[in-house]
Amino acid sequence: MASDGVVVEIGKVTGSVGTTVEIPVYFRGVPSKGIANCDFVFRYDPNVLEIIGIDPGDIIVDPNPTKSFDTAIYPDRKIIVFLFAEDSGTGAYAITKDGVFAKIRATVKSSAPGYITFDEVGGFADNDLVEQKVSFIDGGVNVGNATPTKGATPTNTATPTK
């Protein structure tokens, strides 16, 4: 695992066909100046998982989280898009600690492993708008004895992609 920078880890949970599971997305290594904004994309298989919603985690402190935390689910493109932009203008609602960034709610549709993997990152910046190093650890849903650990090695991303 990367020793510096922010680590975004997609949790690994267990479920069975027809059940709804909650998959946490963790941030670790949050910089001392916090995270003022970030955007990134995960990939998944809508034939295996139906993403039914995404909720902000406990490290989102904006009293009205829909102003700073936004997501979009595109089953036709097989992606989930995340956007966080601190909304106070003063840094008061920045992410300042490690913990759960988001909770992905999904219904298991198939007995195949439900991988959720890193696809791309736009950027991560602290309260001074300084770009942060970030790496990703894939996860998803274990169905029966299947284990979604494909790509469990962190993917280092030093520069934003478009």
Rank of each mutant, 00 (worst) to 15 (best):
Glu120Ala: 04
Asp55Thr: 10
Lys150Asp: 07
Ser110Cys: 07
Ser16Thr: 07
Pro113Ile: 02
Gly114Trp: 04
Ser110Gln: 09
Gly34Thr: 06
Gly140Ala: 12
Thr161Trp: 14
Leu49Lys: 15
Tyr44Met: 09
Ile54Val: 04
Lys33Ala: 11
Val108Asp: 08
Thr161Met: 10
Thr14Phe: 12
Asp98Gln: 15
Asp138Asn: 10
Gly114Ile: 05
Ala72Trp: 01
Thr14Asn: 07
Arg77Asn: 00
Ile104Val: 08
Val8Cys: 15
Pro63Ser: 13
Gly18Val: 09
Asp45Cys: 07
Ala158Lys: 07
Ser111Met: 03
Ala102Gln: 03
Gly123Thr: 01
Lys103Cys: 15
Asp126Tyr: 01
Ile59Asp: 10
Glu9Ala: 07
Ile10Gln: 04
Ser3Tyr: 07
Ser111Tyr: 03
Ser68Cys: 14
Phe136Lys: 04
Val30Lys: 08
Phe69Trp: 15
Phe84Ile: 01
Val108Lys: 07
Asp126Met: 01
Asp138Arg: 10
Thr71Met: 03
Lys103Trp: 13
Pro65Phe: 13
Gly18Phe: 04
Ser16Arg: 13
Asn142Gln: 09
Thr147His: 08
Asp98Ile: 05
Leu49His: 13
Gly11Phe: 05
Asn37Cys: 15
Ala94Cys: 11
Gly53Lys: 09
Thr14Gln: 11
Phe124Asp: 00
Gly29Phe: 15
Tyr44Ile: 13
Pro24Asn: 10
Ile79Ser: 01
Lys97Phe: 12
Asp128Ser: 08
Lys162Glu: 03
Thr155Ile: 10
Val141Ser: 14
Glu120Phe: 04
Val81Glu: 01
Pro113Glu: 11
Ile52Pro: 06
Asp87Pro: 15
Pro148His: 03
Ile35Asn: 13
Tyr93Phe: 08
Ala72Ser: 01
Phe136Cys: 03
Leu83Pro: 01
Ala112Lys: 08
Phe69Gln: 02
Val8Ser: 11
Val134Thr: 13
Pro113Lys: 12
Phe101Asp: 04
Asp45Lys: 13
Thr161His: 10
Leu129Ser: 02
Val108Pro: 09
Gly15Met: 02
Asp119Leu: 05
Asp70Lys: 01
Thr153Gly: 14
Ser111Asp: 09
Arg28Leu: 11
Asp39Thr: 00
Thr157Val: 09
Asp70Tyr: 15
Phe118Gly: 06
Asp119Ser: 08
Thr149Pro: 11
Thr14Met: 04
Asn145Lys: 14
Pro46Trp: 11
Asp128Val: 05
Phe84Ser: 03
Ile23Arg: 05
Tyr74Cys: 00
Ser3Met: 04
Asn127Arg: 03
Thr155Arg: 09
Phe136Val: 04
Gly53Ile: 09
Gly122Arg: 00
Phe84Asn: 01
Ala125Lys: 00
Arg28Asn: 10
Arg77Gln: 06
Ile95Arg: 02
Pro46Gly: 03
Pro113Gln: 04
Thr90Ser: 06
Lys67Gln: 12
Gly123Ser: 01
Val141Ala: 12
Glu9Val: 12
Phe40Gly: 01
Gly57Val: 03
Ile79Tyr: 13
Ala94Thr: 06
Ile104Ser: 04
Lys78Gly: 13
Tyr74Val: 00
Val48Asp: 06
Arg28Gly: 07
Pro160Tyr: 09
Ile104Met: 15
Gly140His: 14
Pro46Ala: 09
Gly122Glu: 00
Gly18Arg: 07
Lys133Asp: 03
Ala36Ile: 14
Phe82Asn: 03
Val134Met: 02
Phe82Glu: 02
Val17Thr: 07
Pro65Lys: 04
Phe82Cys: 02
Ile73Gln: 08
Val30Met: 02
Thr155Phe: 09
Lys133Arg: 11
Tyr93Ser: 13
Ile116His: 06
Glu86Leu: 01
Ile51Phe: 08
Pro75Asn: 05
Gly114Lys: 09
Val130Ala: 07
Glu131Gly: 06
Ile95Gln: 08
Ile116Asn: 15
Pro31Leu: 03
Thr96Pro: 10
Ala94Asn: 02
Lys12Gln: 08
Gly144Asp: 08
Pro63Cys: 08
Val30Gln: 15
Asp45Ser: 09
Ser111Ile: 06
Ile80Arg: 00
Gln132Val: 06
Thr155Gly: 09
Phe40Asp: 06
Leu49Ser: 02
Asp128Arg: 10
Gly99Tyr: 10
Ala94Glu: 07
Ala112Ser: 08
Glu131Trp: 01
Ser32His: 11
Val8Glu: 06
Asn142Thr: 13
Val8Thr: 14
Ala158Phe: 09
Tyr115Thr: 09
Asp98Leu: 11
Pro75Glu: 04
Leu83Lys: 00
Ala152Thr: 11
Glu9Tyr: 09
Thr71His: 04
Gly57Asn: 15
Phe69Thr: 09
Thr20His: 06
Thr107Arg: 13
Pro56Cys: 05
Lys150Phe: 07
Ser110Trp: 11
Ser110Asp: 11
Ala146Lys: 12
Val21Ile: 07
Ile52His: 07
Ile35Leu: 07
Lys103Asp: 14
Ile60Phe: 14
Ile54Pro: 05
Lys67Phe: 10
Ser110Ala: 14
Val13Cys: 04
Thr71Gln: 02
Glu50Val: 08
Gly140Arg: 13
Gly57Ala: 12
Gly53His: 11
Pro56Ser: 11
Phe84Asp: 03
Phe136Ser: 11
Thr96Glu: 13
Gly139His: 12
Ile116Arg: 01
Ala152His: 11
Phe101Arg: 00
Thr157Tyr: 12
Asn142Pro: 12
Ile137Phe: 13
Val61His: 13
Ser135Val: 11
Gly139Phe: 10
Phe40Ile: 02
Ala72Tyr: 00
Ile73Met: 02
Glu9Asp: 06
Asn156His: 13
Val41Ser: 01
Phe124Cys: 02
Thr161Lys: 12
Gln132His: 02
Gly53Leu: 08
Ile137Asn: 12
Asn47Pro: 08
Pro113Asn: 07
Pro75Met: 02
